[in-house]
């Protein structure tokens, strides 16, 4: 019955469909752009956190502490607050504080510490014996990172990518606050503010499918690269 209403609605709402397609595109852009940039910064941060740890490869208490504190701060600010709190920075970065591009900035800022901790966790899974073996065979620290730590942690890192992207899908729903658009925004504006339950349902269904696809692709990739 619910499905019937969705289908009949779909037939009579060409304009709405256009809006949803556009929103899906915005969600897609926000999630993948911020995820991508997030990983560019988050992976090195995770590596630094791991290496500088006590009895790590490049043990350095002060680096570990300071990076750790910054990361924790980043992770403790609720996203909706972060979104508005860094508006000046957003404006500086993309020239505007509203729109999809503007939403990508806070999404990225939120993603970086999240990714850093996940990557740190993935690196922690690499048995310390492997690093030791690499040291024993005369690997330089840079080689240990590129040839041992990252390849061995790859399944965990891909898992981290998946978790991050799914989380970003959730965060992106709040991007409507700064006019970022996206499916979550459509759901709130049409579903909540205009009492159009059908639109809300459709956006939720699309988001569910979107998340399912991300998770399945991620799981599939993990399976392919995991030889443990």
């Amino acid at each position: 019955m619910l499905l019937d209403s969705v289908f009949s609605w779909w037939a009579g709402n060409e304009r709405m469909i256009g809006l949803l397609v556009e929103a899906l595109g915005q969600t897609f852009t926000m999630v993948f752009a911020s995820g991508f940039i997030g990983f560019i910064f988050g992976i090195p941060l995770g590596v630094i956190l791991h290496l500088s740890k006590e009895s790590g490869l490049l043990e350095n208490r002060s680096v570990n502490k300071s990076v750790g504190i910054v990361v924790n701060i980043g992770r403790s600010v609720p996203f909706i607050i972060l979104l508005v709190a860094i508006i000046p920075f957003t404006r500086f970065m993309v020239g505007s504080s509203i729109g999809t591009a503007a939403a990508i900035v806070p999404l990225t800022i939120a993603a970086i510490p999240f990714i850093a901790r996940l990557v740190e966790g993935a690196l922690l899974e690499v048995p310390s014996g492997l690093v030791e073996a690499a040291q024993a065979m005369g690997a330089k620290p840079r080689q240990i990172i590129s040839k041992v730590l990252l390849p061995e942690a790859l399944p965990g890192i891909i898992n981290a990518v998946t978790i991050t992207l799914v989380t970003l899908v959730g965060y992106s729903a709040m991007a409507g606050t700064v006019g970022g658009g996206g499916l979550g925004d459509v759901g709130i504006r049409y579903g909540y503010q205009r009492f159009d339950g059908t639109v809300m349902l459709i956006t939720v269904v699309i988001l569910v499918i979107f998340v399912q696809i991300i998770q399945s692709v991620g799981d599939h990739l993990v399976k392919r690269v995991d030889h443990r």
Partner: peptide, 19 residues
């Protein structure tokens, strides 16, 4: 690091790279 390349080592738990 360079000198270690002339010293081989094997371990109880092999320490092979799974990847």
């Amino acid at each position: 690091t360079l000198t270690r390349r002339k010293i081989g080592m094997i371990f109880q738990h092999f320490n092979l790279l799974s990847s």
